[in-house]
Design a protein around this nucleic acid. Sequence first.
DNA 1: CTGTTAGCGCGTTCAC
DNA 2: GTGAACGCGCTAACAG
Lengths: 332, 332
Amino acid sequence: MATMTDIAREAGVSLSTVSYALSGKRPISPATRERIQSAIDRLQYHPTASARALASQRTSLLGVAVPQREDVDAHVIMEFVSSILTASHEQDYDLLLVAAEDHERTRRVMDEGKVDALIVMDLVEDDPRIPSLAALPRPVVLIGYPQESGGLACVDFDFLSGAMLAVRELHARGSRRIGMLTSPAATHRPSPTYARRSRLGYTMACTELGIAPTIVEVPSDAESLGAFVREQLVQEQRFDALFVHQEPALAHLGRAFAAQGVACPEDVQIVAISPEDVAVSGPWDVSNVELPISSIGRTALAMLLEMLSGPAAPPHSRLLSPTFTPRGTTRA
Amino acid sequence: MATMTDIAREAGVSLSTVSYALSGKRPISPATRERIQSAIDRLQYHPTASARALASQRTSLLGVAVPQREDVDAHVIMEFVSSILTASHEQDYDLLLVAAEDHERTRRVMDEGKVDALIVMDLVEDDPRIPSLAALPRPVVLIGYPQESGGLACVDFDFLSGAMLAVRELHARGSRRIGMLTSPAATHRPSPTYARRSRLGYTMACTELGIAPTIVEVPSDAESLGAFVREQLVQEQRFDALFVHQEPALAHLGRAFAAQGVACPEDVQIVAISPEDVAVSGPWDVSNVELPISSIGRTALAMLLEMLSGPAAPPHSRLLSPTFTPRGTTRA
DNA sequence: CTGTTAGCGCGTTCAC
DNA sequence: GTGAACGCGCTAACAG
């Protein structure tokens, strides 16, 4: 491997001249610049990352803690990672992956200066990692919005506003018995930070509109959802609209509607919070409040880079605003 | 940030003693070992990764080139990454992610010594990156088995043997008109390295068994597969068994069978090549030849580490042997 | 068993 | 505009 010294010798100049020619931090005469470049090409020179990192105190690497638990949607994780990866390459950073479950390792990666900053995905309420992350000397951004973030920067979708928007849209389209469908709250396991927020937003919107909130928790399998449709929609006719915050339920719900003759949007309107692709991939095209995965990823990265540039802005959270997209499951 | 020099002073020993105490490359008396450890704790010392990398010529980082194209299954990619991540952590390596599409960057990461070795996923036939990868001075392992691998190490599932196994199992269970169902060969786009191999295995097995091979190419949407079932299975009764190498088709196929009254496994038996989770996630439980994603990932990592340890074994490929799991779509 | 010393390759002062 | 010198924090000979 050729070093800068080799280039200097080969080009007949001094070491620092090569350095300045490469960094551009000082004007270099076109002539020597030329000879240096040709030496670089000839010797196949590439700056050594670790030497550069040692001298400059920056690695051009960003850490990303990715969850590996079975119960988080691999597609969503992949889209987060992918958006962050693309954005970081644009800023000339590479990504260092660590398993979120291995928090010891996540810490080490920061402590040893393997990365310049860190993004942590899949935060949960009362996440035990928060104090430890807050104590780190380098920038950290959380994806998720825990109630107690320990002063850490957070980026997430604004689930509260999103839920309110969904309810208002259903209300504006004539529905008055608007239920919320969601997964059973896991009291034992840690709960994602968004679970509480969407419920709260739903309840607030109902209160604001003067209608009674009803949160229905149903497991995400076909049988449970079939039973829900039969009992609560067909027999009791309890709801004329559903706000669904439960992505895996959407497809089953659509089939249950079809099987049991529930007309949508005539009998029951539906608005979901979901990424666009799951809204349109099932048996029907679901009107939704968009969950902007890629935007969250890009925003998290942008925030991290701002923090790296300098402690300009005080620590804060960014919650992405909701947008509603009417599709086949709501009336005009 | 405390440095090793600080520790040495604090513990009243020499710099190298600290280094050796940490690396364990030299016996240290329990007494001084103790004082060093206490100094480390007291000063919150952590070795600096870049300095260590510069001096030791190894980064403890492995590169992984991940594809981001829409047409590769995010789940599969995620499972590859996840298995490699877990395995590398076990060997005390971290993973550096690069976008496979950005091959320029992939090269740079190797050339600048940001990683010790590289895994490249999602190889295609005549992959243009192969010559460039083969010229790299550090170990490279491909996931995939291109016809011309340029002497690079490859790891993949043995699709040829897998297809043969599938056909034999169907034949052993009484089927004689065994068709192969797969995605249309994209003549324009690059084709994954496994497409040809499973077709070849299917054809070879048929020949071996003295039956006529028929490869049917159907797009993976519900309509196309419905039409296929109606025309070729219900009307023509062309096949009494299908070997399916087309994961996204399985669920649609199951629903089409149900809708059109094709009895499985009575009328038509089915064996797929697929990961277990997709085999059992659809409307039926499909007998399958397992596509062992995690094993491929772990094997690729193991191979990389062997290459890093020393050029013991000559360059070679590893193809994982198929296993058949009977489920609901084959007879006893 | 422990100290001393010279690099690893690059960044950044200084004087020339 | 250019060259020499030192430091980043750690590793690994080479002594003792």
